[in-house]
Structures are given as structure tokens and as C-alpha cells.
Simulated scan of single mutants.
Amino acid sequence: MVMGPTHAMSGAALGLGIAAAIPTALGGPTTVAGAFTFAAITAGAALLPDIDSPQATVSKTFGFLSVGAAHVCENAALAVYHGTKSKRDNDRENGHRTATHTIWFALLAGLLCTVLVGVLGKPAAIGILFIMLGLALRGLFPEWSGKSDWLAITAVSGAAAAAVWAWLPQMAGGVALGTAVTVGIVAHLLGDALTKSGVPMLGGVVSINGKKWWDICPPGFMRIRANGLADKVLLGVFTAASVYLAYLCAFDPDALGADWSPLITSDAAGELQDRTAQPGANAW
């Protein structure tokens, strides 16, 4: 698989890139803070598929709670695999890289988030942000593997969610948040599809050469190794893209076709320039 930091940064880049494309009528971001919140959710969702393995780093995000959830997801994924596999599919003893690594899971997770936000409103949206931000932090800092690190991640995620609750009057709508989750999961699938193992994106539904769980991957020469040179190059590319898109979201949203106001408007910038040009004006 592609390493956690690469997954998280690919999700963040995609989130920042499409935040402006979500219509406000569907609950799309209307502020810079909203766009960054949207990107935080996509970054976390880009780690979500690996919750099907209790041994995965991301499964340790919230300590025993997420490890327990990982055991449930692994068994559920294995049950889905055995219930849908064909005679040509191999027998498996665990559900890792099966049901949660399909496009169907991406769509179902997004739909579930949309329904939850539609029914419960802002509390559900904040809860989704809390979980996804925690996953993003664990993905970005996989070296945090001590027994108490999950407490720090939980505290940071909780503080960020509380800040959003207090300072962001309106969270994105259910459709927008569901889209963010689906996009993040798809980013994960595309990343894992580049590896030697590939992923069963259409698993359980579409039969390929008589197999329901065919791993989709590029030709051999295009496949990459986890934590290898290509993986690190991708991490650098997605990090640079995220920084650039974050700058556009904050200071030049028109370049992305966004409707929200930049952090510094042209009038404010002109006023600041006039003040600093005056004799005796303080300057950094």
C-alpha cells in the first residue's frame, strides 16, 4: 500500500482542489475556513479504508475504540468477500483490502455521512470532522506509535472540532460532507492501485475473467513500492499541491472559481500599503 502521509496529502490536495466546485446550494464551503475544513475531511477519509485491519497504523488512531472498530470492519469485510466471491476467487482468512477498498464502499460511506448530517445536522458534521481529522493526523504522523499517542491525537481532534463548533457558524451541508468522504476514499483507492498488489475497486459486483475480486493495478513497470522512491516523490508532489492550493483558497479564491472572500482583500492590501508608505510608519 501507499504510506499514510501520501494518502493523507493526496486527500488534502483533492479536497482543496474541489472545495470550490461544490455548489453552495448543496452545502459547499462559503469561507476559507470552510474550505480548509472540507480538505481536512478528505484527508482523513483518505485513510479510512485501512480501518479493515487491526494491525494498520490508522486503526490505532483512537486507541482501543478504533482497534475494536477495526476488528468489526475486518470481520464484516471478510463476510462480504465470502458472500460475493466466485469459484475462481481465492479463499481468505481476513478481510483486509477487500470490501473497504472498493468504489462501492466509497459511495456507501459518502451516502451514510450525507444521511447522518441531513438527520442530525451540525452535531453529526462535527463528529465526522473529529473522526476524519484524527485519521488524518495518524496518517501524517505514523511514527506516533506509543501506547499513549492516541490520547494526544484524540485531544487535538477534539479541540479542533470544538473550535469549528464555536467559530464556524455553518458547517458544510450533508451532500458536501458526503462528497468529501467519498473523494477521500477514492484518493486512497487510486493510491493503493498504483502498488504491486492493486485494489479490488469493483469487487463483489463486477466480474473480470470470472473473478469477482480482481485486483486492479497498472502494468508492472508503473507499479510502486510502499515507502519507496516513487512513494516519496508522490508525497512531495501532493504536499506541494496542497500548499499551493491552500494559498489560492486563502488569498486568491477567484483562481479556483470560488465565491468566498480572500483573507486579505485588495482594498485592505492597498490600505496597508498606504499606511506603511507614510513617514514614520512601523514596518516589519
Rank of each mutant, 00 (worst) to 15 (best):
D89Y: 07
H71P: 08
D252S: 14
F130N: 02
A69I: 02
G257P: 07
A79T: 15
H188Y: 04
G146P: 00
M9Y: 07
A176W: 02
A8V: 09
T179Q: 02
G121M: 02
L14C: 09
S10L: 12
A283G: 15
I103N: 09
T37S: 13
K87A: 14
W214E: 14
G95E: 03
H96D: 01
A39D: 02
D252T: 14
H101G: 06
A45C: 04
V117F: 01
T276I: 14
L140G: 05
N90F: 14
P253V: 03
A281Q: 00
A246F: 02
A226I: 14
G68M: 13
T179R: 03
L248C: 09
A106F: 02
I216L: 04
V233L: 07
S242Q: 10
A226R: 09
V2G: 13
V72D: 12
M201K: 08
V156R: 05
G27V: 05
C113I: 07
A161R: 12
H101P: 08
A45M: 05
L190F: 13
A39T: 03
E74S: 06
V117A: 02
I131V: 14
F130V: 03
A193P: 07
K87L: 14
E143G: 08
L245P: 02
T30W: 07
L235W: 11
V243H: 05
A99E: 05
G184L: 04
S242H: 05
I128Y: 02
P200W: 00
G191D: 08
C217P: 07
V243Q: 04
V206C: 13
C249F: 10
W260Y: 09
G203Q: 00
G118C: 03
I153H: 00
G4T: 15
K122Y: 07
G83W: 01
D215F: 09
G158V: 03
A250I: 04
F36L: 09
T84W: 07
V72H: 15
G236F: 04
G280I: 12
D231N: 06
L135T: 03
D259P: 10
P169D: 01
D91Y: 13
A77Y: 01
P279E: 12
G257T: 06
H96M: 03
I51Y: 08
D254A: 09
Y244R: 13
G270N: 13
A40E: 04
G17H: 11
G204K: 06
R223M: 03
T42C: 13
Y247A: 07
T276D: 11
L168E: 11
L116A: 13
I22R: 01
S59K: 05
C73G: 14
E93Q: 14
Q278G: 15
A187L: 05
L190R: 08
F130W: 04
A161L: 05
P279W: 10
F38T: 08
A152H: 00
V32T: 10
W284I: 11
A250N: 03
A166D: 12
L16T: 12
G228W: 08
K85I: 05
T102V: 13
